[in-house]
Amino acid sequence: MQDGYMNAPVDLADALSSFDEPWSPRTVALLNEYDVRVVKTRGEFTRHSHPDTDEFFLVLRGSLTIRMDSGDVTLGPGQMYVVPRGVPHQPVSVDGADVVLIEPSETVNTGDTPSELTAERRPL
């Protein structure tokens, strides 16, 4: 990705193999003012919400549970879910998962709850 524009197809497996840190999303493409991000998950993430935006999750590998007050949603490979704006949620993956996220470029991964897992925006 150069200057925010793709100049070649993105291989998501290659993108995911370029880093090891869980909960450290990498931006692989831009879609209008939205980032398409890949992230490796393992363990529990910070419970948080995004007051101004929905959050899209698509599991590529593994299993991801999104804990919410209204009930947990568990996703496997090929399954996706959109957490509505303002809904507190906590992604959890005991055995790890590879996930695609789509959210506005300025969105901070820990939303309204900064923590040690807050990551800076990192384009690949």
Score class of each variant (00 low, 15 high):
124 L>S: 03
1 M>C: 06
47 R>N: 05
47 R>Y: 02
41 T>W: 00
70 S>N: 15
93 S>P: 06
37 R>V: 02
91 P>A: 08
93 S>R: 00
5 Y>W: 08
35 D>N: 15
74 T>A: 10
114 P>Q: 00
7 N>D: 14
14 D>S: 13
70 S>A: 15
87 V>M: 14
71 G>Q: 14
82 V>P: 11
97 A>R: 04
100 V>A: 01
13 A>H: 09
98 D>P: 00
39 V>S: 13
116 E>V: 08
44 E>Q: 11
49 S>C: 13
113 T>R: 09
87 V>Q: 12
15 A>V: 02
36 V>F: 04
74 T>I: 10
93 S>E: 04
15 A>W: 01
20 D>T: 12
65 T>M: 14
76 G>T: 11
106 E>V: 11
116 E>H: 08
33 E>V: 02
88 P>Q: 14
20 D>A: 09
38 V>K: 07
89 H>M: 09
119 A>P: 00
52 D>T: 11
95 D>V: 02
47 R>G: 02
85 R>G: 14
108 V>K: 06
108 V>W: 01
31 L>C: 11
109 N>P: 04
72 D>A: 14
104 P>G: 03
49 S>Y: 04
74 T>Q: 13
83 V>T: 14
77 P>W: 10
21 E>S: 10
118 T>E: 02
102 I>S: 06
78 G>M: 11
99 V>K: 00
34 Y>K: 06
42 R>L: 15
97 A>D: 05
86 G>C: 08
61 R>D: 15
79 Q>W: 07
6 M>T: 11
19 F>C: 03
117 L>H: 05
99 V>S: 00
46 T>D: 01
28 V>P: 01
96 G>E: 01
